[in-house]
């Protein structure tokens, strides 16, 4: 996937959930110029989005490019560290996904109702060993693309 600006803009409506009115979208390819993000050196999520209002905060870091959660979280974590080091406001982290793979299901627990905090399993495969997955002490939300329409209603 070549991240040409026109491709990134075309893809954005499928990647950015309508959880509030979108005030601004800053695509990953713009981060280098805007924030000094070293794109070839640090893994990057896809969008830094400001909503005018959501129930959880206005500034969201969104990762939507990879097909599986485990790998998406790695991109989100690296971007979160960078944004924190530059003291750029991020209220929440969000992963947009089509489906949970078999391996992801072994490691992560997600609610059927999306836009809920993600949980991960520790050491043993049972529910007692789940704990909230956090990046920089904040919950990570997960939403399936198929639920975007439902959010608009």
């Amino acid at each position: 996937m070549v991240e040409r600006p026109e491709d990134a803009h075309r893809r954005a409506p499928d990647d950015i959930p309508p959880i509030g009115n979108i005030k601004s979208v800053c695509h990953a390819y713009e981060w280098e110029k805007k924030f000094g993000y070293p794109l070839g050196k640090i893994r990057a999520a896809d969008y830094y989005v400001e909503y005018s209002h959501t129930a959880f905060g206005s500034h969201w870091l969104i990762e939507a490019s990879r097909s599986h959660l485990h790998s998406q979280l790695k991109q989100l974590c690296a971007s979160a560290e960078f944004f924190a080091s530059k003291k750029i406001q991020v209220d929440n982290y969000l992963v947009v996904l089509d489906e949970l793979s078999r391996r992801d299901k072994q490691k992560y627990r997600t609610s059927e109702i999306t836009l809920k905090p993600l949980k991960q399993i520790q050491e043993k495969l049972d529910n007692e060993n789940t704990r909230e997955y956090k990046i920089r002490n904040k919950a990570v939300f997960l939403i399936y693309r198929r639920d975007f329409e439902r959010l608009k209603k």
Binding site: E3, Y29, W31, L39, R43, Q75, R103, K107, Q122, K124
Partner: peptide, 25 residues
């Protein structure tokens, strides 16, 4: 060991650099 059983003892991933010149994802 827990993650190793699911994803492999060692995982090596290369990521997109999210630029226009990206050739490897």
């Amino acid at each position: 060991p827990f993650d190793g059983n699911i994803f492999g003892t060692i995982e090596v991933e290369i990521f997109s650099n999210k630029t226009e010149n990206n050739k490897v994802n």
